[in-house]
């Protein structure tokens, strides 16, 4: 059984009497341990898709089964709990809280899942170690470089040991070298067995993942899946041309 099962997802907005079909019948399965990218130009509906899978938004119609939970009709409280325990987010603008230290930022998800402060500290330090940020734990986000901030954000996404990690344009705000290192980090997470989903508009970045799904006008326009076609993924980070 797949980790994530989307069946005929529709999302419709009404803006000033005009109907906007952000998602128009998306059906998709994602297995545990996959490394996927969702690619599409802005306005294609890829962000809406990520928000819906990420439990930040609900579909207008269709069903979603995430790890055995039907999230399309879950309550706000259940969704918050799923976001907390099963999902890790990494954002383009890092989205760290500027008033907290690096460690406190990483501890934040655990505050909402009720760990003791000792346990929080331990797990936060472990997560920071896995992204090589343990020596910066007392710094504030403003004292860090963009790459360091993004690594902190990754540590925060990992700390509750989620089923799936969403990265929304994770390199969009970084220079290309740093961006590559962040992408390598996601690749490493994938080889360690994590399920990672990249959302990007950039085919270069999407190229690092074996499976690529292209969204256009709210529909899956194209899909490259090594399982289906036997294609070998083009995995050549750093050889842009």
């Amino acid at each position: 059984m797949p980790l994530l099962e989307l069946r005929d997802i529709h999302k419709t907005y009404y803006l000033g009497g005009e109907t906007i079909r952000a998602l128009d019948g998306v059906t998709l399965d994602i297995d545990s341990g996959e490394f996927i990218s969702i690619i599409g130009p802005s306005g294609s509906g890829k962000s809406t898709l990520m928000h819906i899978i990420g439990c930040l938004d609900s579909p207008t119609s269709g069903t979603i089964n995430l790890d055995g939970v039907m999230i399309h009709n879950a309550s706000a409280r259940q969704l918050a709990s799923i976001r907390n325990k099963k999902i890790g987010f990494v954002f383009q603008f890092f989205n760290l809280l500027p008033k907290l230290t690096v460690r406190q930022n990483v501890e934040l998800p655990m505050i909402y899942s009720g760990f003791s402060s000792k346990e929080r500290r331990e797990r936060a330090m472990n997560a920071l170690e896995s992204v090589n940020m343990e020596d910066r734990s007392k710094h504030r986000p403003s004292q860090l470089s963009g790459g360091q901030q993004q690594r902190t954000a990754i540590a925060r996404a990992l700390v509750n040991n989620p089923k799936i990690i969403f990265a929304d344009e994770p390199t969009g705000n970084l220079d290309s070298n740093t961006g590559e290192r962040i992408l390598q980090m996601f690749d490493k997470l994938h080889t360690e067995g994590k399920t990672v989903m990249l959302v990007t508009h950039d085919p270069e970045i999407a190229a690092v993942t074996p499976r690529r799904i292209e969204i256009r006008d709210g529909k899956i326009a194209n899909e490259i899946d090594p399982k289906l076609s036997g294609q070998t993924p083009r995995f050549n980070i750093g050889t842009k041309n």
Partner: peptide
């Protein structure tokens, strides 16, 4: 927004 995305409920 950040707090909600990492699992804070409305009540939180």
């Amino acid at each position: 927004g950040i707090r909600k995305s990492i699992g804070a409920t409305n009540l939180d």
